[in-house]
């Protein structure tokens, strides 16, 4: 029993990890904590749903369509909201991205109503028996997909010129400009990638959960995962995501249902109590 709970937790954790990695990438590249990240996810997943169920298009067309939508959404958000706000104080960015979150929720409610929808499973089939535990093929599919997506992101950032340029830009903007790296192009690219990561997360999450306009709240779970892992560290975000996923799958068995919602926050406080910078976080050096 515990084994199948852990596998389910890993599946949910994969989604948290994708959300957290996207958030961290945006913070590192443009300094913006994207409170609309979960709503990027929500609305892109609705787009996938419409293409798949309402227009009855094949799976891959729906996925590619939703990813393309998410990429464009990310770029538009960067161009219209982030680029102006990032030169100002952090509070401006917070309110700007929160504003985007409400706008996207509003649009989604108009287009798809407040109802909940059943999203078809991508990995159907019988439960796999391992010992006494039975594991859903959906969970296994989600875990493998997430690993593939994160690996692709890692390879892109480390082995391609543009990916390395993005990392260079996050480390020293002036120097990157002096290399001839077009800063605005890279910002745009990173928000397109952020959108794509969010859309992937939503498409993997939706079959396990019902699809609704309220699912954007996952932003906060993602932020908590990122902080637990050591804010600003992508590997940390992945670890934080999986840790949160497993614990919020296993612990509810032992505690009253009403307390489920506080698991992430308790874990957050525990980790920060032991290591204030998070699991992989470096010591912050404040420059005077």
């Amino acid at each position: 029993m515990i084994f199948s709970l852990i596998v389910d937790g890993l599946a949910v954790g994969s989604v948290y990890a994708l959300v957290a990695v996207g958030l961290v990438m945006l913070v590192k590249s443009t300094g913006a904590l994207n409170f609309a990240h979960g709503d990027f996810m929500m609305i892109s997943t609705f787009v996938a749903y419409s293409l798949l169920v309402q227009l009855e298009l094949p799976f891959w067309v729906a996925i590619v369509g939703a990813l393309a939508f998410a990429a464009v959404l990310g770029m538009v958000a960067e161009r219209l909201v982030i680029r102006k706000l990032m030169t100002g104080p952090m509070s401006g960015i917070i309110m700007g991205t929160l504003g985007m979150a409400y706008i996207l929720q509003g649009i989604a409610k108009i287009v798809w109503t407040d109802d909940i929808f059943k999203f078809p499973e991508f990995f159907p089939g019988d439960f796999v028996k391992i010992g006494s535990a039975s594991i859903s093929p959906q969970s296994i599919g989600v875990i493998i997909s997430a690993i593939i997506i994160i690996t692709c992101l890692y390879l892109f950032l480390n082995l391609t010129k543009v990916g390395t340029g993005l990392r260079a830009l996050t480390q020293n903007k002036t120097a990157a400009t002096l290399m001839g790296i077009k800063v605005t192009k890279v910002y745009s690219l990173s928000w397109a990638l952020g959108g794509i990561l969010a859309a992937f997360a939503g498409i993997l999450l939706a079959p396990a959960l019902y699809l609704s306009t309220g699912m954007g709240g996952i932003t906060f779970t993602g932020i908590i995962a990122a902080i637990i892992g050591g804010f600003g560290n992508m590997f940390g975000a992945i670890i934080g995501g999986y840790l949160l996923g497993i614990l919020s799958s296993v612990i509810p068995v032992y505690i009253p249902t009403e307390l489920q919602g506080i698991i992430p926050f308790v874990l957050l406080m525990l980790v920060l109590f032991i290591k204030p910078t998070g699991i992989l976080g470096k010591k912050m050096v404040k420059k005077v």
Partner: peptide, 21 residues
């Protein structure tokens, strides 16, 4: 630039390839 402004978390080779961006 002044103060060198190398990319601190990139490897030496990655820094050099960024020069040829």
């Amino acid at each position: 630039p002044e103060g060198r402004m190398i990319f601190p978390d990139l490897t030496v080779t990655e820094n050099l390839t960024m020069g040829a961006y």
